[in-house]
Structures are given as structure tokens and as C-alpha cells.
């Protein structure tokens, strides 16, 4: 690996998402702007305040939810459409799935929007804290107080409820669809193996887990929430049950705020509370510095499809693209 080069950018506010659409660097900020960086920087006014953003499954557009109650789809050419809208409520949860499916949540209400334009409104007993589509898109997981609801996207079959006491503040499926893992209010993850609903406790974090990423081929689940990236092994048939996680990229007491696994190698990028970014090889823990510290905590990290460029953003607006090869 040669020395990385950084192209800097300032969003002026909390960077909600930095990444690539169709290979083009795109930055979404909490103010509501989406910036597209080609030869020049173009800035598009999409929302009055962006609260959440995720790229579409095909990587060609960015889905965002805002303080204005809207869900928008924005492409790298800056064109944008409103997919869904509620009056006056903060749209703060979003998930994207195969075939252009989008799910969103605001309090106890939400919606699934299919590429056909069909909208299915959903309502759950407790506030929607997290949303995730299963890899094949048939099911939608909804994190809420006391567990995770699994909803069938295309049928009216009753939800399956994965119960575990406490507040679940986020949720994801493993890439093979065999596990559901939730983020919890009390510095832990909780997992279920869907085959037999077996529980997995993943605890011991000194802080809440805010960021997670599955490694290449789903062998590891990397997370923030500690002064190192914590990686849980998912390669065996029992997942992380009874195993201790790997700790990588420890930099003294500096907390890790973001993790993003490389798309085609057993490597991950780690962002820290002081703005530092490192690349770490999973096998041997070898570290390469990608960015020295900055003004604010790293709030978003995403590789491009080839894994040659890494987009980053921070809580105070410092953002950029790191070229690695």
C-alpha cells in the first residue's frame, strides 16, 4: 500500500453520510444538503434537515429521511424525488433492500415503499428504533423496545417477534440471512440465530454501539463502542456464541466511532472520536494510518465498490475522500 492521499471537503455541519454513488463521491449533511463531487462540487438542497441516509442496494442513489418528514431518493446527477412524506414528523429511521425497496420509520409509524411505487404503511406497538431488510428482501426487521419484529414484506402473514428484554436501538441481518443482530441501549449487542431462535449475548462494551459493519464474506461483524474496533466471529455454525471477539486498531483510550469493512479483502477502516482514521488488516492487526486527527469525531465511513477509495465525514463538517492505491 502506498501513502494515501486525501481530498478534503467541508460540509459545515454534521456529516450524515459520505460515500459513492455510481463511483461518484457524495456527501449528505444534517443541514439537508447533498453534495456531489466530480470536477466541481455541486450542492443540492434536498431536505430541511437530514436525519438518516442509506445508499440504495444497487449503489446508484441515496435514500434520505428528514426533519421535514420526507423520504427522498437522490441520484449522483443531483436529481431527486420524494418517495414518501408524513406531516410534521421527524423521519429518522431508514433501510434499503433489494429491488429498490425502502423502509422508513418515525415514532411508532413507518412505511415500506416498493419500486413499483406501492406503499405499505406499518405501525408497531413501540417506537421504531431500527430497520433492516433481509438479504433477499423478503423480510423486514424492526428494532423496538423488548425485541425485534420480523415482518413479511410481500404478504400479510403475522410478524414474528424475537423477544429480548430491553431497548433495542438498531438492527441488522447477517449477509447470509441466518442471524439477526440488534444494538442495545445498554452497551451490548443481542443476536438471534433464525434457524432455532438461539440467543447470542455480545456484551462488555464500555459505550453504546453506534456503528457496525460485516466483513468480506460475512466472516466478522465489526463494531464501534470501545477504544478499539470489536470484531465478533461469525464464520462457524454457532456464530460468536462462546467465543471472544477480536480487538483491532486500539489507540490508547481514543474511542472508535465508525467502522467500515473493505468490500473485497479482510480489512477494515476505523474512524475515531478525534477524527483519526486507520486501516487495519483483520488477520494480523497490522495498522496503516489514513488520516491524522481532526476537529470532530468521525460520523461516517464508506468504501467505494473497488475498495480503492474511502469517503469519510465528521460531526463538525470535516469530510473528504482518501485514495489508497
Amino acid at each position: 500500500m502506498t501513502m494515501p492521499t486525501i481530498a478534503n471537503l467541508d460540509t459545515g455541519t454534521f456529516t450524515e453520510w459520505a460515500g459513492f454513488l455510481d463511483g461518484i463521491p457524495v456527501f449528505a449533511d444534517a443541514q439537508g444538503f447533498i453534495r456531489v463531487i466530480e470536477k466541481n462540487e455541486r450542492r443540492f438542497d434536498i431536505h430541511n434537515g437530514i436525519l438518516c441516509a442509506k445508499p440504495a442496494f444497487d449503489g446508484k442513489s441515496l435514500l434520505s429521511g428528514g426533519e421535514d418528514g420526507k423520504i427522498c431518493r437522490t441520484s449522483a446527477d443531483g436529481s431527486s424525488e420524494i418517495l414518501y412524506q408524513t406531516a410534521t414528523r421527524w423521519m429518522d429511521k431508514i433501510a434499503t433492500g433489494p429491488d429498490g425497496a425502502v423502509a422508513c420509520g418515525s415514532g411508532r409509524k413507518g412505511a415500506i415503499i416498493l419500486s413499483s411505487g406501492e406503499v405499505r404503511e406499518i405501525e408497531v406497538e413501540r417506537s421504531i428504533e431500527g430497520l433492516a431488510f433481509a438479504p433477499k428482501g423478503m423480510r423486514l426487521a424492526i428494532a423496538r423496545y423488548d425485541g425485534v419484529e420480523l415482518l413479511w414484506v410481500n404478504t400479510k402473514n403475522p410478524n414474528q417477534f424475537l423477544e429480548w428484554k430491553g431497548a433495542h436501538t438498531g438492527v441488522m441481518f447477517s449477509p447470509d440471512g441466518k442471524y439477526v443482530v440488534s444494538l442495545m441501549q445498554e452497551n451490548a449487542l443481542h443476536g438471534w440465530r433464525l434457524g432455532d431462535n438461539k440467543h447470542m449475548r455480545m456484551s462488555g462494551y464500555p459505550a453504546k454501539v453506534a456503528s457496525t459493519s460485516w466483513s468480506y464474506k460475512g466472516r466478522w461483524l465489526a463494531t464501534s463502542g470501545a477504544p478499539a474496533a470489536i470484531l465478533w466471529p461469525f464464520a462457524g455454525k454457532d456464530g460468536p456464541m462462546g467465543k471472544t471477539p477480536k480487538e483491532l486498531g486500539g489507540m490508547g483510550k481514543t474511542m472508535v466511532t465508525r467502522v467500515c469493512c473493505h468490500p473485497s479483502a479482510d480489512m477494515l477502516a476505523i474512524g475515531y472520536e478525534n477524527g483519526m482514521i486507520m486501516a487495519v488488516r483483520i488477520d494480523d492487526g497490522k495498522i496503516v494510518s489514513l488520516r491524522r486527527d481532526g476537529q470532530g469525531a468521525i460520523s461516517t465511513l464508506n468504501w467505494d465498490r473497488s475498495g480503492a477509495r474511502l469517503a469519510f465525514g465528521s460531526e463538525d463538517g470535516e469530510a473528504g475522500i482518501i485514495e489508497i492505491s
Binding site: R89, W90, G107, Y145, K165, G166, A167, Q185, E186
Partner: peptide, 13 residues
Amino acid sequence: IVDSDEEIYEMNN
């Protein structure tokens, strides 16, 4: 003005 549904969460301790 932000509207939110009152959600009381017991901690798992």
C-alpha cells in the same frame, strides 16, 4: 418543534 411518542425504556440492569 419536535413531536415524539413518549417511550419509557427500562434498563436491562
